[in-house]
């Protein structure tokens, strides 16, 4: 692999005695979508949290090769974003400029212009003055993507961004992220719950189990029935549907 947008070397996250992420090393190429998969508690969110500046970690996380990542290099979309009561969409998206401001700075005209243009581009202008809590789940998640976008960071970290949404909104949000990735040349690292969806959107998948990286490669390489069945502790089958990989639980035997 030549160019690197994000490099992790032996990234380890500890919560007291428990090791949530155990020496994960991975390079992510510019413009790539890396999907993090694995069962609940595998360490996907903790790894993203470390990269997003939420958890302390040991090891090295670099922007490209050499420079440690700063808050300006990664933008983060949490699984269940906090929607403060009464905060308007514009106020919320403006928070995304925080990393670009000094401790005592205020947002400049340029910061405001970026927010307005992102709102327009995600077709959120009509919501700009509305309270965040008045929006539907899908709209709220779009607003959170907008906040991440105004951070103007080359790497987008998504922590199961669609797990609270129905199928239609899930797809809409992921398609939006994919469109932005191509238009803005973003690199995406996303923890993804649904393996079939992960294989549709990600260029490569990283399978994490007990905090360790156990497989890394194209969806076809990583999504293997025997490995997944063991890790998810349930029989799974892999099917092809119109050229796409679909992961399903093995058919149940229905007696009587």
């Amino acid at each position: 692999m030549n160019a690197v947008a994000l490099r992790c070397r032996d990234v380890t996250v500890r919560f007291g005695e428990r090791i949530a992420v155990d020496a994960v090393s991975v390079d992510v190429a510019p413009g790539e979508w890396l999907g993090l998969i694995g069962p609940n508690g595998a360490g996907k969110s903790s790894l993203l949290g470390a990269l997003a500046g939420i958890h302390d970690y040991d090891g090295v996380a670099q922007r490209g090769v050499g420079e440690p990542i700063t808050r300006r290099d990664v933008a983060y979309v949490p699984q269940l974003p906090v929607a403060p009561e009464g905060m308007t969409v514009a106020e919320y998206v403006l928070l995304g400029r925080t990393a670009h401001l000094g401790w005592f700075d205020r947002e400049s005209r340029a910061d405001r212009a970026i927010v307005a243009s992102v709102l327009a581009r995600l077709r959120l202008d009509e919501f700009a003055a509305r309270a965040l809590t008045e929006l539907s789940g899908g709209e709220q998640q779009r607003v959170t993507v907008a906040r991440a976008l105004v951070q103007d960071a080359p790497v987008l970290l998504l922590d199961e961004p669609t797990s609270a949404l129905d199928l239609g909104h899930q797809n809409a949000v992921l398609e939006l992220v994919d469109r932005l990735r191509r238009e803005e040349d973003l690199t995406v690292v996303a923890a993804m719950h649904d393996l079939s969806t992960a294989s549709r959107f990600a260029d490569r998948l990283a399978l994490i189990h007990h905090g360790r990286l156990v497989a890394l490669g194209s969806p076809a390489e990583v999504l293997r029935a025997d490995v997944l069945s063991e890790i998810y502790a349930t029989p799974l089958v892999i099917e092809r549907l119109g050229g796409e990989i679909v992961v399903l639980p093995a058919p149940r035997r229905r007696d009587g």
Binding site: E107, R109, A110, R112, A113, A129
Partner: peptide, 25 residues
């Protein structure tokens, strides 16, 4: 992003711009 940002600054009447301005002042 820079080009679209300056385009938005040129038309201050957009709903988004107004709301952002309100969040600011």
């Amino acid at each position: 992003m820079a080009s679209s940002a300056s385009a938005a600054a040129a038309e201050p009447e957009s709903a988004a711009d107004l709301a952002v301005g309100r969040a600011f002042r």
